[in-house]
């Protein structure tokens, strides 16, 4: 495969069977999105957010891009904005890991910190305020931008159909809802019997503790109608599956991959025997090494220690 530059090398990721982890009578496959240029599924989203805006004239040459994110979307946007010549500002909580700050800084991103105790909601609020105050910036806003799900409808979904036309079910984690919505709609258009499941991360009390129920958030990108069910997965189950994936299948993935695998294995018994189930692996494990998720030790203790971090 040869490409003119990094922005063209996104997608066409491997779909890999998991013969050692599949429940008897079923085959699980993992879509390895960590194989994208900046190491996550968000490269697809970043490309669509930017290129749709270019296409519809929302983004002019050299215009500043502003997005609340310190995670995979920020890193994907950073690489893309660098090669396309857009300055980028990321608004992120001030307690974000040093690795991320260094990576974004290296890509030339301007970072604005929002208060740690407001979490990602604080970053969203601050970014929205900046965008309102300064009409010269363009905020793609992945939580509300249909280009997010469109990336999966036009690229991830067709790739799965091409590689595994008999796919019976698809599982992805629930973040912005872009993957389940985009892939889900595409697979159901191909075969209305395909089942779509969302794996929802369940954190410890530390994460939910300060949240007011009125400040909940259902991303506009998520189409709840496309889901056949939504199943929560706690840190211990997600971590256990993530570590088994490395130990038994030789695949080093981020913790949210384990959550989707737990759901994929659980829903097999709802499908006819012989069914093939695809789970999405949004990224590799590299960016999570410092959380201790892969360190030797008691998995239950490690799960407790990471349950206070947002691992998906």
């Amino acid at each position: 495969m040869r490409f003119g530059d990094i922005s063209q090398a996104i997608g066409n990721t491997p779909l890999v069977g998991l013969p050692r982890l599949s429940p008897d009578g079923y085959t699980l496959y993992l879509k390895l999105e960590g194989e994208n240029p900046t190491g996550s599924v968000k490269d697809r989203v970043a490309k669509y957010l930017i290129e749709q805006a270019e296409r519809y004239g929302q983004l002019q040459p050299g215009q500043r891009v502003l997005e609340p994110t310190s995670g995979n979307t920020g890193i994907g946007l950073a690489a893309l904005c660098k090669v396309k010549g857009y300055p980028l500002t990321c608004v992120m909580p001030e307690n974000t890991s040093e690795e991320r700050t260094q990576l974004l800084t290296m890509f030339g991103v301007d970072i604005v910190f929002s208060p740690a105790n407001e979490g990602s909601n604080g970053s969203v609020r601050l970014a929205q305020q900046f965008a309102a105050d300064d009409p010269t910036v363009f905020m793609p806003f992945q939580y509300g931008n249909p280009a997010n799900a469109l990336a999966h409808y036009e690229t991830t979904g067709p790739e799965i159909i091409a590689d595994l036309p008999d796919v019976a079910a698809f599982v992805a984690g629930l973040g912005t809802g872009g993957s389940v919505t985009g892939v889900g709609k595409r697979l159901k258009a191909w075969n209305p019997h395909v089942r779509i499941f969302a794996a929802e991360p369940e954190y410890g009390d530390l994460v939910y503790g300060l949240r007011n129920l009125d400040e909940g958030y259902v991303p506009e990108v998520l189409d709840q109608e496309v889901l056949d069910s939504r199943i929560k997965v706690d840190s211990l189950k997600a971590l256990t599956w993530t570590r088994r994936l490395a130990e038994e299948e030789g695949i080093f993935a981020g913790v949210s991959t384990g959550a989707s695998l737990e759901v994929a294995a659980r829903v097999c018994k709802r499908l006819p025997e012989g069914s093939d189930v695809v789970a999405m692996s949004p990224d590799g494990g590299w960016k999570y090494l410092s959380t201790g998720a892969y360190a030797p030790g008691n998995v239950e203790e490690i799960a407790t220690s990471i349950s206070g971090t947002l691992w998906a």
Partner: peptide, 11 residues
């Protein structure tokens, strides 16, 4: 809880 991929170093 809103999703995303934030990973604050807590715990």
């Amino acid at each position: 809880v809103a999703g995303g991929a934030e990973l604050p170093s807590v715990g």
